[in-house]
Design a protein around this nucleic acid. Sequence first.
DNA 1: TAACTTTGATGCTGTATAACATAAATGCCC
DNA 2: GGGCATTTATGTTATACAGCATCAAAGTTA
Lengths: 233, 233
Amino acid sequence: MFSSNFDLEGQFEDNKTIFYLLTPEEKAEVEKHQTLTYYKKNEYIFKEGDKPAGMQYLKEGKIKIFKEGVGGREQIIRMVKQNGLIGYRSLLADEMHNGTAVAIEESAIITIPPDILYNVLLRNHDFSLALMKDLARELGFSNQRTVSLTQKHIRGRLAESLLLLRNQYGFENDGMTLKVYLSREDIANLSNMTTSNAIRTLSTFAGEKVIAIDGRKIKILDMQQLQRISKLG
Amino acid sequence: MFSSNFDLEGQFEDNKTIFYLLTPEEKAEVEKHQTLTYYKKNEYIFKEGDKPAGMQYLKEGKIKIFKEGVGGREQIIRMVKQNGLIGYRSLLADEMHNGTAVAIEESAIITIPPDILYNVLLRNHDFSLALMKDLARELGFSNQRTVSLTQKHIRGRLAESLLLLRNQYGFENDGMTLKVYLSREDIANLSNMTTSNAIRTLSTFAGEKVIAIDGRKIKILDMQQLQRISKLG
DNA sequence: TAACTTTGATGCTGTATAACATAAATGCCC
DNA sequence: GGGCATTTATGTTATACAGCATCAAAGTTA
C-alpha cells in the first residue's frame, strides 16, 4: 500500500461515475483534498469495525467486501469493479464499517474525506440524488441476495454467483471467459457454501458442459442453461 | 381500504420522523398533496412489481414487507412500525417495488407523490441527508440479515427474530410481552424456516423457560439467554 | 349452530449439504 | 530446484432441517 495526495488531472471526466455531476469548482475542491492509495492483491482496504476514512472510489482494480459470521465464516456481500464506490454506506449511516474490503487484484483507490463529501452533498443536489439512487439500488440488490442465498439450493446459488460475476466484470475478449479470477474459497464465500461444495458443483457444471474450468479460469459455455439453473433454484 | 386527501393539521410535529426537518412552507406543500389511506389487517399496500405510488409514511399500525422466493416461499425482509417509511427505496432507485407490503394490523398510511417528494429533496439538504442516512442504515441491516439468515442455525435465527421484534415494537406494559402478534407462519417467514420448525423451536424455547407462549402472545422471560442463543448461532 | 377453513402441535422420514479425511496438483520461497 | 504450504479435487460420514402426515383447537362464514 502506497499513498499520495498529488492532484490528478482529468480523472472525473468519465461519465461512468457519479463525479461527472460535479461542477468544475466542486471537482477542484475534491481533487485538492483526496488521496490516492495503491493496494496489492490480498491487501485490506478497511476492516469491519473501522471508522470510515471517507468515500472511496475504485479508480482501478477489483475488490471484495465480506462480513464475518458464525465461527468466523466469511460471506462476501459485494464484488466491486472499476469506477465503483466503497465505504460510503458506513459513512452516510454514521456507523463503523460493517464489512471488510480486500483487493482481489492490484487496485488504485481514491479517498474523499468525510467533510469534503458532505460539503459537496449539501451543495449539489444532483450528486446527492445520484448517490441516494446508488444506495437504494444496492439495498434492492441486498434484499434480493438474502432471498436467493437462503432459499436456492447449491446449484442455483452457484449459478447465480457466476452470473453475478459475469454482470459485474464481464468477459475476456473471447466472449466467454469470466474477467475475474477467484479462488474456490472466494466463490464458496460468495455463494454461501463450503469450498468442497463449490469445487464439487463447479466440476458438475463442467461435466454438464454448462461451463469449462481451467484452474481459476471459468468459461461460460451455456448461458441459457446457467440462467435456468439459477432461476429454478 | 379507504382513502382521503383532506389536510391533516399538525401531523409532522413529532420529531420521531424525518418530516420535522421540513420548513413550514415545505410541510404545507406536502400536506396539500398527500393522501391518507386506511388498511385493515391483511390488506396489501403494494405488491412486488408495482410502480411506486410515492413515499409512504406509516402514521399508525404495523406492516410486514416480504419477497417471494423459490416456489413462492415468502421471506419477510422488513417489519415496519409506526412512523416508519415504506416504498421510498423503489422510488429513489427508480425501480418497481421489489417487495410486497401487507398490513399486519389496522394501519393508516400517508402517501407523498413522487414529484412532491423530489421537490422537497432538491430544496432541503437536511431532509435529503436524513433520508440517505435511513437508506444507508437499512442497507447495513439487510447485509447483516443476509449473514444471519444464511449462517445461523434454526435456534439462532429464531432468537434473532424475537430480538428484532422486540427492538422494533417493544413490550406491552408488563415489560415482557412482545407488542406484536404474528402467526407462526409469519415468524417462520421472518426467520427463514418452515412453520413446523417455528412452532417446534418456540415450544423448545418455552420448555427452556427462555420465553412463554400463550397463543400469539410471546413473553420474553430470559433476555440474556435469548441474546446468547442468537449470538452463538 | 353447523360446516368449513385456518392455525397450531408433534412425530417420522428423506435428503441436501456441512464436516471430515485424504490425496494430488500447483504455487511459492529460500 | 527441492521442499513446504496452499489450493484443488473427490470420496465418505454425520446431521440439521425440510417435507409430509396426522390430529386438535380455534376462528370464520353460511
